[in-house]
């Protein structure tokens, strides 16, 4: 009871130092939590595209049915092709209408002849699609355009790689800064309380007993910061996730709904506790000399 009281006393007696420590570490946890969700979302998005390799082959206008069937046969001869779906001009128009059902002006103006027929090809592996694209590129009399997501995935990969690298560096730097601030503040309090610690030791208090208030303080900074960082990050991500997720539709880059984030809370709480404990142990190691 007295140890907890002493810990609370330490916080109250120097509220600005305590706030500075809490604020610095909270920023680190905020960045750490955000980075965690960005990396998780990135990996999930990459995985989504890589496990659903797909190309769309738009056909030239006016090609006859024989040429279309011959192309479909050629596509089915590639090993590793999972599905070939023919989208006629009428089906394309139907899909277009569904996508723009809220805008009758546009849907009313568009006719099936405006839209190209196409093949949607999915494969078990992106390399199969590479091969198809290479083989079909020269067939300009039949094919108008081939849309292949490889470039998009590659771009996404390079962007995410950059974000991940920068995020890790920024998080490490701010975490080091936050830990340094907490270390300095708790160490300062420790030095100021050296006489009190000596008295406690003389009265028969163990080293652990004398160290407890400082250990509690460090653990408090660690856990409270992880909670603040988590809440801040979750609220912001939850606010912006609908906008960001539309770019990656139908995949979800960030979880939808605030409850989807909660499973990770114990992880961050534990990380905060562990960091605080490690830091407190490091500071109170000086007690060996008292």
């Amino acid at each position: 009871m007295t140890t907890l009281h002493t810990f609370w006393h330490h916080l109250r007696r120097s509220p600005f130092q305590s706030l500075a420590a809490l604020f610095s570490l909270s920023i680190s946890f905020f960045l750490g939590t955000t980075l965690f969700w960005v990396i998780l979302g990135a990996n999930q998005t990459i995985n989504y595209y890589q496990t659903r390799p797909e190309i769309t082959i738009y056909l030239k206008d006016g090609i006859d049915q024989n040429a279309t069937e011959s192309l479909q046969k050629e596509l089915s001869n590639f090993t590793g092709v999972r599905e070939i779906r023919y989208i006629s001009k009428d089906q394309a128009l139907e899909a277009y209408r569904q996508l723009n059902q809220n805008d009758p002006l546009i849907t009313g103006m568009i006719k099936s002849s405006f839209l190209p027929a196409s093949f949607e090809v999915t494969a078990s592996h992106p390399q199969v699609l590479d091969q198809i694209v290479t083989n079909l590129t020269g067939k300009t009399t039949l094919i108008d355009e081939i849309i292949y997501q490889k470039t998009e995935i590659d771009q996404l990969l390079s962007w995410l790689g950059l974000i991940r690298q920068a995020g890790i560096i920024v998080t490490i730097v701010t975490l080091a800064y936050g830990l340094l601030v907490v270390f300095s503040i708790v160490s300062l309090k420790f030095v100021v309380k050296k006489d009190e610690i000596k008295i406690i030791r003389l009265l028969g208090g163990s080293r652990l007993y004398a160290a407890k208030p400082f250990l509690y303080e460090s653990i408090f900074y660690g856990t409270a910061s992880s909670i603040i960082g988590f809440i801040g990050s979750t609220l912001i991500l939850n606010h912006y996730s609908p906008t960001i997720n539309t770019y990656f539709y139908p995949n979800h880059f960030f979880p939808t709904g605030i409850y989807s984030y909660l499973w990770s809370f114990p992880i961050f709480l534990f990380a905060g506790f562990l960091l605080g404990y490690a830091l407190g142990s490091l500071i109170t190691k000086r007690l060996q000399k008292i």
Binding site: M1, T2, T3, H9, R13, D195, E196, I199, I200, L202, L203, G204, G205, Y209
Partner: peptide
């Protein structure tokens, strides 16, 4: 813990009240 100390430089914790100083040794 079995020894009571009364020293010349009283060794009381300056930012604790007298009651809290005694409470400290009782807690120990």
């Amino acid at each position: 813990q079995q020894i009571g100390i009364v020293f010349q430089d009283n060794l009381l914790v300056s930012d604790k009240t007298i009651a809290e100083n005694i409470d400290l040794v009782l807690d120990i």
